[in-house]
């Protein structure tokens, strides 16, 4: 047991380790050669313009993306391993829940699939602040509410790694703040989170940032490091600065 724990802690320095990942989708090279680490126990923000390869990277991490080359290890196992299916929670960009079921029926179904109790379904529903809508059909909810149901369905299994593709799209500022509070709380409990976003002000809520552009990592740093390096006042300024520099270098 002791040996196992030491091994576990050793492996858990990084929640995700990607080496020389190459992905081609529909004849287009989306990720040419990407190597990156996601440290454990942190909220890592995956930022970049749309089309930069964020979703493809996320799909590779959860093991649903066909990859041409490279190595993706998640929690010490190859991405997509059977043993990871209990340990990784995945929320797709568009809400993937059943519209013709109630919020509660959806979350309870995913709880049952993951072997979690019905009471953990109630906790997950409360965590995304949908307690008052638990008996509403998902099809009757707004877009933002649907994406929260989708998030609850991932939280319910109490995963060690949460991989979230743009979870705060279409949410009002109060809800966005509440969800980021939840993400930070989960990380404080030792879970790892990889959260993609194209809203730059959310960078301030991440422990670490990965800026992706045209399938390449433009920056992998904390926000203060980025501001320091670029002399910008905020994340958006820092990213624009980095993109300009990259374009100049390319010329």
């Amino acid at each position: 047991m002791k040996v196992g724990e030491a091994y576990f802690h050793h492996m858990m320095k990084n929640a995700v380790e990607i080496d020389h990942l190459r992905v081609v989708r529909g004849g287009r090279v989306v990720l040419p050669d990407l190597s990156v680490r996601v440290p454990a126990g942190q909220v890592v923000g995956l930022l970049g313009p749309s089309g930069s390869g964020k979703s493809t990277l996320i799909r590779a991490v959860v093991g649903v993306q066909v990859i041409q080359a490279g190595d993706v290890r998640v929690l010490g196992e190859p991405a997509g391993s059977v043993s990871l299916r209990h340990r990784v929670g995945y929320v797709t960009q568009s809400p993937s829940v059943y519209e013709d079921l109630t919020v509660r029926a959806n979350v309870r179904y995913f709880a049952a699939i993951l072997g979690a109790s019905p009471s953990s379904a109630e906790e997950a529903i409360d965590a995304v602040d949908l307690g008052s809508h638990a008996d509403t059909l998902v099809g009757r909810l707004s877009g933002g509410q649907r994406s929260r149901v989708s998030l609850a369905a991932a939280l319910v299994g109490d995963p060690e790694l949460l991989v979230l593709d743009e979870p705060t799209v279409g949410l009002d500022p109060v809800l966005r703040r509440d969800l980021w509070n939840l993400f930070n709380r989960l990380a404080a409990q030792g879970r790892s989170l990889l959260v993609s976003s194209h809203v730059m002000d959310e960078a301030a809520r991440c422990d670490r940032l990965l800026l992706l552009r045209e399938g390449q990592v433009l920056a992998d740093a904390t926000l203060p490091e980025l501001l320091d390096r670029t002399g910008a006042l905020d994340a958006e300024g820092a990213f624009l600065n980095l993109i300009d520099r990259a374009e100049e270098a390319a010329r």
Partner: peptide, 13 residues
């Protein structure tokens, strides 16, 4: 098409 199948296949299902 709704993505629920892709999600289910990332679970122990």
């Amino acid at each position: 098409t709704s993505g629920t199948l892709e999600r289910l296949l990332t679970t122990p299902m």
